[in-house]
């Protein structure tokens, strides 16, 4: 019996298009904690493959892609890609003819289209991007080919929840007026 059950435990083969397994940290990182740790659940890193949708290198998509999780494109995409709160990665085999809007965009393959990232654009060696970039931060490696414009827009600080303080009506009205003034874009507009 034990022999049969052993056979059932054999793991299924990994699909060819599956993303690479997460890198195992060095043994030194597994030190026993000597300080009290937070009880909040461990947040998986952004590149966790379990939270990443993947377009494999033999896949071609024509149309609009909206996603609420990270996206890894190693195939062909024509149209638009939108992942406002997440990361879009164009893999080394990826060929994208689309505009991309995301929190973070990493390019290792070829992109023809405009890229808009609220946080960061990362263009790696041997990547090719033809299009206009609008982002807060940009990183480009030597060997990458870029043709287009780069417009750095500093991210506006997110409005923090104001502490509940009882204020007279006049004071609260002036505070509301002040918060309507745009902040954080100084030095960019002509």
């Amino acid at each position: 019996m034990s022999m049969w059950s052993k056979k059932e435990e054999t793991p299924a083969p990994r699909p060819a298009s599956a993303p690479p397994a997460p890198v195992i940290p060095a043994a030194a990182e597994f030190k026993k904690e000597t300080v009290p740790v937070s009880t909040t659940p461990y947040r998986t890193p952004d590149s966790d493959p379990r939270n990443t949708a993947t377009i494999g290198k033999s896949v071609k998509v024509i149309g609009q892609i909206f996603t609420k999780e990270d996206l890894y494109v190693d195939g062909d995409v024509e149209g638009t890609i939108e992942s406002q709160e997440n990361k879009v990665t164009v893999g080394p085999n990826g060929r994208v003819q689309a505009s991309i809007r995301a929190r973070e965009v990493v390019i290792l393959g070829q992109v023809q289209g405009n890229v808009e990232a609220s946080d960061k654009v990362d263009i790696r060696k041997d990547a090719k991007l033809v299009g206009d970039i609008t982002t807060s931060r940009i990183s480009i490696e030597d060997g990458a080919l870029f043709k287009g414009s780069i417009d750095i827009k500093k991210a506006e600080p997110k409005p923090t929840a104001a502490p509940v303080v009882s204020t007279p009506p006049a004071a609260s009205a002036s505070a509301a007026g002040a918060s309507a003034v745009p902040v954080g874009a100084a030095g960019i507009k002509r």
Binding site: K147, G148, S149, I188
Partner: peptide, 11 residues
Amino acid sequence: TNLGHKLYSQD
């Protein structure tokens, strides 16, 4: 970009 300009770039 640190000077506050928009850059058009090409090789």
